[in-house]
Simulated assay, not measured.
Amino acid sequence: MASASASGSGPGLVLVGVGPGDPELCTVAAVRAIQAAEVVAYPVARLEAEGMAARIASPWLRPQQRRLPLVFPMVAEAAPRRLAWRQAAEALALEVAAGRRVVLLCEGDVSLFASASYVLLALLEHHPDCPLRLIPGITAASAAAAAGAWPLALQRQTLQVLPTPDDPAELEALLEAAMACPEGQRPVLALLKLGARWSWVRPLLEHLGLLEDALFARHVGWPEQLVAPAAAVPSEGEGASAYFSLLLIRCGWPQVLPEIPPGLG
């Protein structure tokens, strides 16, 4: 199995979560690893693209560092994606074998719905001796909750983080199951990759009486960020269906709380 640590003084690979968008949300560990690297790798949809992770980390990059864009095709087919992950792992392992300090930048967190996770699995299988370590990053859900002053989970509540279902019936069943939990233990749902689904998710929340207890977030951490009560965001219109949007849904409050401020419950 690969080494659990890759020090900044010797060759190795560090998978770095750079957060959802704001460079100031990069951790101290992330910034140190980025600045210590000789090679900075990052995912792109095509070679000529900048890459969102590289854009987030740009204030911390140095001119003398070599850039290594890794193409991860945005396709549904499994074969091209598997090939891309394997090729990325080979390219990174080759750099480390040549004695270089390498970082792979990852938007958000390196372990949560991350392309870096697939590269990690390929490295563990094909290059188990490659020294590596992972630096976690702030997730978009955490950043959205902080921006909205919106507590994510309290006491015995659970937090469910999942991509927004494609099927309205699937989401309705999920929400109804959450509402059926004992009072005080009803979960909070973080629905990622909301996108165009907002056009039918909003009326569903309204139908179930959950719209007033939901927070909508779009482009968290970027200059165009929008974090607002879900009831204030129309189901259609400019920006409503942005790919980088998410929804936080509170299905209930714990029984022992201070007085809940207006607009939160």
Rank of each mutant, 00 (worst) to 15 (best):
E238P: 13
M52C: 13
L257A: 15
E38M: 02
G265A: 08
R197I: 09
G252C: 11
P11N: 11
P151V: 00
S241N: 10
G8M: 15
A84M: 02
E77D: 15
H127S: 08
V44C: 09
G137P: 00
G195K: 03
R186P: 15
C106P: 15
H219F: 04
A33I: 10
P20C: 09
D129E: 11
P261M: 08
E206S: 07
A4F: 05
R197M: 06
L134T: 14
L204R: 04
A84N: 03
G17E: 04
A29W: 01
E24F: 01
A79M: 15
D129K: 14
C106M: 15
V16L: 07
E77S: 14
I56S: 10
A242R: 10
S7N: 15
R133K: 14
D109S: 05
A196D: 03
W200Y: 00
V39R: 13
A89P: 02
A78D: 07
A173R: 15
L248D: 11
A6W: 01
S235A: 14
Y243R: 13
R81T: 10
E172Q: 06
R218L: 12
R67W: 01
E125F: 02
P151R: 00
C26K: 03
Q157P: 01
R82H: 14
A2Y: 11
L264G: 04
A146E: 07
A190D: 04
P165K: 10
S5P: 12
C181N: 12
D167V: 03
H219P: 15
L162D: 12
C181I: 15
P131I: 05
A6R: 00
A76H: 12
P223T: 04
V110F: 04
A98N: 14
G12Y: 00
W60Q: 09
E77L: 05
Q185P: 12
P151F: 00
W60H: 12
D22I: 06
A190T: 05
G21W: 06
A153V: 02
S58H: 10
P80M: 14
P80G: 07
L92R: 01
D109L: 05
A54E: 10
S115N: 09
G10A: 12
M1N: 07
F113M: 13
E183D: 10
Q64T: 12
F244E: 00
A240R: 14
S111Y: 02
V227A: 02
G99S: 02
L83G: 13
P229D: 05
E206G: 11
L25F: 01
A54R: 09
R86Y: 03
R186N: 08
P254V: 12
R101A: 09
L104T: 08
Q64I: 12
A217I: 09
I34C: 05
G252A: 10
V233Y: 00
V39K: 14
R186F: 11
S235P: 11
E183I: 10
